[in-house]
Nucleic acid binder design. Structure first.
Lengths: 230, 230
DNA sequence: CAAGATTTGTTCGTATGTATA
DNA sequence: CTATACATACGAACAAATCTT
């Protein structure tokens, strides 16, 4: 008797194959045809399994080229949270509020480590991103790119890949969900940009307390708006 | 001209359909046949799209019964992190270490709020889980269930669904990945159980400093082992 | 630039397993 | 037990993208 356990079996077997053959992110996977041979299942089943693995970013599929071991990013988390945020009907900003609170918690929780990690290190890259933000705002353009790069740069010194990806994931959900909802109008942008300056200043001075204060200032306008509409 | 954008299009259209028709978690989705009609694509395409949504826990499929709107849990995050941990070959405990550090950061970051949230609230449920841990350990059984329930109970008062799910997700990765790797032997279990008691004590006393100390004690044996093998 | 080979993407038809009434 | 509705699996054919010769 064949047991095709709801297809989840094929997913597990392909995962095992990746581990067993010692593949790393970026390496080419066997072709669909080869997997059909080796696993003894139909191509449709292999395709559905690959689809699952692809949506988890465990593999990356390139049409007409091939399939490769993925980077296992937190893209699925972003997808799920974004959809959750959109599912909250009308004025229910619960998911967005929770994501922002998570961002705050994350930034505050690493204050100590961050100050130590940046001691005697060059903060010029982070400072440069603040300048990019200022320039973009002055030119009337969006400064989302620079904002994202700034936070990534600050977190990079932690040496914790997961935390960095978490921070970026929350950033993505935050900035993507904000325009989709009936959210209060943006507050004074200059205050936001100055908050970024304050964060760099605090790290440069090695002052944990100042860092926490700057982080709270960075989020305070939005945080107030979100909790107010509770 | 037809646009079959790598099938990701179908996923987006099904997502939109959920939002447009105002479906909520648990509600039944249209059948595959109906989706084939409405979207004008083949059954296989619908199936692959549903497979993607299923692995993201946006829909839930029950064989022979139907598909329903899912609960959008963080299961995909757990899957991805677990695979990342298994992919680190040999003695590389990087992912596990990063997950544990994320747990610590999360627990520490909410100390203040947690103390306030538990003020004048009944901590008996959390205390009961500690007793279940103690009983299970005395009987030589695993106390994983009680441990998981304990941390969930503590976080529940936060009123932040996302943080609670994040904590649980990290817990799952932590406890599932630990046995898979060549990890140092378990330290004295009684100390771990006592750390849980100390957390409840701190919350009962409304003492943030004691809470942080208890959290560090809770993780310190493992944290030391993981960073030592760096 | 052109032709062909390789690989993934889409579709159809059919048969089978599973839960519900 | 039967009938119905539904999801699961398979295989074959053709379309589209990419790379190589």
């Amino acid at each position: 008797m064949r047991r095709n356990d709801a297809g989840g079996d094929v997913v597990a077997r392909i995962k095992d194959l990746i581990l067993r053959t010692g593949l790393h992110p970026g390496d080419p996977m066997p072709t669909e045809a080869r997997l059909v041979e080796e696993l003894g299942v139909a191509r449709s089943s292999v395709r559905e399994a690959m689809r699952t693995l692809s949506s988890l970013d465990i593999v990356e599929v390139r049409h007409g080229h091939g399939t490769f071991v993925g980077r296992m990013s937190l893209a699925p988390l972003v997808d799920g949270l974004l959809f959750r945020a959109r599912l909250n009907d009308g004025n229910d900003l619960r998911t967005l509020r929770e994501v922002v609170q998570a961002r705050i918690a994350l930034d505050l929780s690493i204050g100590q480590r961050l100050v130590e990690a940046w001691r005697d290190e060059d903060l010029a890259p982070a400072r440069a991103e603040v300048e990019r933000m200022r320039a973009a705002h002055a030119a009337g353009r969006s400064f989302a790119d620079a904002d994202q790069a700034f936070h990534a740069a600050v977190l990079s010194k932690l040496g914790n890949e997961l935390m960095m990806q978490l921070g970026d994931a929350f950033w993505q959900v935050h900035t993507s969900a904000l325009p989709l909802l009936d959210v209060p109008p943006a507050t004074d942008i200059r205050l936001t940009i100055e908050a970024h300056d304050a964060i760099v200043d605090a790290l440069e001075a090695g002052d944990t307390t100042a860092y926490e204060k700057a982080v709270r200032a960075h989020y305070s306008p939005l945080d107030r708006n979100l909790t107010a509409s509770e």
